Simulated assay, not measured.
Amino acid sequence: MTIAGKRALITGIHGFTGRYMAAELQASGYDVIGLGSQPSDDADYHQIDLADGPGLRTLLATVQPDVVVHLAALAFVGHGSADAFYRVNLIGTRNLLEAIAANGKQLDCVLLASSANVYGNVSEGLLSESTPPAPANDYAVSKLAMEYMANLWRDKLPIVIARPFNYTGVGQADNFLLPKIVSHFRRKAQKIELGNLDVWRDFSDVRALVHAYRGLIETKPVGETVNVSSGRVYSLREVIAMCTAITGHQIQVEVNPAFVRSNEVKTLCGDNSKLRSLIGGWHTPSLDETLSWMLAE
């Protein structure tokens, strides 16, 4: 695949993942065009809501991308409005796929970012792409519904679905767990309030994640669903211990019952063998490397 001059449209380009994705694709020679819901003076940026089907069709006809990376989503699981998850993650994605198909141009790849939350509370062993989904909250249901809806377009569009497990890095909002912990250590807070400390999560580095997404765009396993994960889990206790070791700062941890979610997924560990078979040599930095990067910023 010759990349020079290829046009990549990234939805949600101003989000945490979108900024890293744009840098990754630009460094590889793509011309990057951004789409988002907020105003911006950035060059090659278009403000448009995913609810605006006609606007999306006009934009696709103007931009004529070779690749679409669909990152725009409502992602914070604790978000108050269930309706918003379905409006953005399901209906918004459908409007986008409809606009891409209506444009008529033959694309190289349409990468849709789903979520490992679709696996729900299955906690035994590694979760592979063949693990039956069992979503446990509205966010996860909206993402799984998006995957099923996208199947309706598989004969028309070169769709690849990525299921990222947790990932983090510099610039992620503090309402996500690791940035919250990091910010407490950076400002040498005396105590931190957290929910359940005995949840185990598979964490990747956002820089490795966007490298995986670029690899999927270029290998084009069309019609496939692919986990993006480190294949290792860490409990929040271990994360606190790593931050303590990196900074030398001791912090008092208090469990706030209000932060303990009843439908919390206890263990999420992803089998990444399919990803690594598609993208030779892919790996994510160890979690202490990622935390050191975040703590140093």
Rank of each mutant, 00 (worst) to 15 (best):
Glu218Met: 03
Gly34Arg: 01
Ala136His: 08
Pro221Ser: 02
Leu287Pro: 05
Leu177Arg: 08
Leu209His: 02
Pro132Leu: 10
Leu25Thr: 07
Ser235Met: 03
Pro135Gly: 12
Asn196Ser: 09
Ile48Trp: 07
Glu124His: 06
His283Glu: 15
Tyr45Cys: 01
Ser286Pro: 00
Ala27Cys: 06
Glu129Lys: 04
Ala73Thr: 01
Val260Lys: 08
Val226Gln: 09
Pro221Lys: 11
Leu275Ser: 00
Phe203Cys: 06
Pro132Trp: 06
Phe85Thr: 12
Leu157Gly: 02
Gly270Ile: 01
Leu144Gly: 07
Tyr234Cys: 12
Ala101Asp: 13
Val69Glu: 00
Ile279Asp: 00
Asp31Gln: 14
Ala82Val: 00
Trp153Ala: 14
Arg7Lys: 15
Asp44Pro: 02
Asp205Trp: 08
Ser130Lys: 13
Ser128Val: 04
Asp49Gly: 05
Ala102Asp: 10
Leu107Cys: 04
Ser273Asp: 02
Ala51Ser: 15
Val32Gln: 07
Asp155Leu: 09
Asn89Thr: 02
Asn137Ile: 05
Tyr148Pro: 03
Leu268Val: 02
Ser204Val: 05
Leu178Ile: 14
Pro179Gln: 02
Lys188Cys: 09
Thr225Asn: 05
Gly92His: 03
Ala113Gln: 14
Trp153Glu: 10
Trp200Phe: 15
Glu289Asp: 11
His211Ala: 13
Ser204Met: 11
Pro135Arg: 03
His46Phe: 05
Arg276Met: 11
Ser229Ala: 15
Gly280Lys: 13
Ile91Asn: 10
Arg261His: 11
Ile91Pro: 04
Gln106Met: 10
Leu268Thr: 13
Gly270Val: 09
Lys188Met: 02
Pro179Leu: 03
Ala258His: 10
Met242Gln: 07
Leu9Cys: 06
Asp205Tyr: 08
Val253Asp: 02
Ala8Thr: 14
Met146Ala: 15
Ile192Leu: 07
Tyr148Trp: 09
Trp282Ile: 06
Thr244Asp: 10
Ser277Ala: 15
Gly80Asn: 09
Val63Phe: 11
Asp44Ile: 02
Met294Glu: 00
Phe185Val: 04
Ala4Cys: 01
Ala189Gly: 03
Ala136Gln: 13
Leu71Ser: 14
Trp293Phe: 11
Pro65His: 07
Pro285Ala: 15
Val118Leu: 04
Asn137Leu: 01
Ala43Asp: 14
Cys243Pro: 09
Pro65Lys: 04
Val118Thr: 09
Ala189Trp: 03
Leu97Pro: 09
